[in-house]
Design a protein around this nucleic acid. Structure first.
Lengths: 132, 132
DNA sequence: ATTTCCTTTTACGTTAACGTCAATTAGTTG
DNA sequence: CAACTAATTGACGTTAACGTAAAAGGAAAT
């Protein structure tokens, strides 16, 4: 069965966050779980959505940026004007991410280069020591 | 001449940040400009360092993480033990960045896919409209 | 029925990364 | 020398993203 329900505590433990964090995301409109009375019930979709949020957070996006990205998935497919707007915003975000990947690759390259230099310094120190 | 000096206001304007930001980074030990009396004087090295900080910030790193990364460049090359430690921390950071690049590429791929779907929906709407 | 456990809402507290403002000082221009 | 102009330190304010604690409700086990 794919329609298993999670309590907030279960979901929190699965995703390794606190319940406060999950409720806070709901407060911001990032998640909207079902309710049975007053208690929240989360399904697979909610879990996936939370996972997307957490990945975005790890990548350094603000919760507002994350909301904007998630909203791209919630567009009304019957409204042409909306579709066009969402595609435009999506393209913008895609470009930003491409830039970010390039910057990250630059940082990566620089660290690799630094590592090589440090290693060389280290090797030369060995040669100097071994001849004493 | 490569040893031109900048005032804090000049540097701030060049890098498009406020002077407060620059002073705050100094407070955290991220930059250490020369002083002529009490007034700060920045050189090319300081400018490059600030640029690195700002790139790190754009990429979502905390100022503390940025400090740790910059500190990799400040290792004492005469201390073998230190060199080894710095290389170890550097390797760790390199791995993290590789993971981050992979995650970002995943996000990129998902957005591209979404874009394709939205576009298809849009095309079909056109066909539907044009036959009316 | 009472205790236990999980949940809810409300509300105040905290940290990072600055913004903003005030008071003071140092250099220079009319 | 008076009046700007730009710099400095100090201090309090602000926002995002939660942490933490208190009060109250419902269901289940003893």
């Amino acid at each position: 069965m794919d329609n298993y329900q999670y309590s907030i505590a279960e979901l929190a433990q699965m995703m390794d966050v606190t319940t406060r964090t999950i409720r806070y995301y709901e407060e911001l409109g990032l998640i909207a779980p079902e309710r049975k009375g007053s208690v929240r019930l989360y399904n697979e979709g909610d879990r996936v959505r939370l996972k997307l949020i957490l990945r975005g957070r790890r990548l350094g996006f603000s919760l507002q940026e994350i909301e904007e990205m998630l909203s791209l998935y919630d567009a009304d497919p019957t409204e042409v004007k909306q579709l066009q707007e969402v595609i435009r915003r999506g393209d913008q975000k895609i470009k930003e991410i491409e830039d970010q990947i390039k910057d990250l690759q630059a940082v990566h390259g620089e660290l690799i280069e630094l590592r090589a230099k440090l290693n060389k310094t280290l090797q030369e120190k060995w040669k100097g020591e071994s001849s004493k």
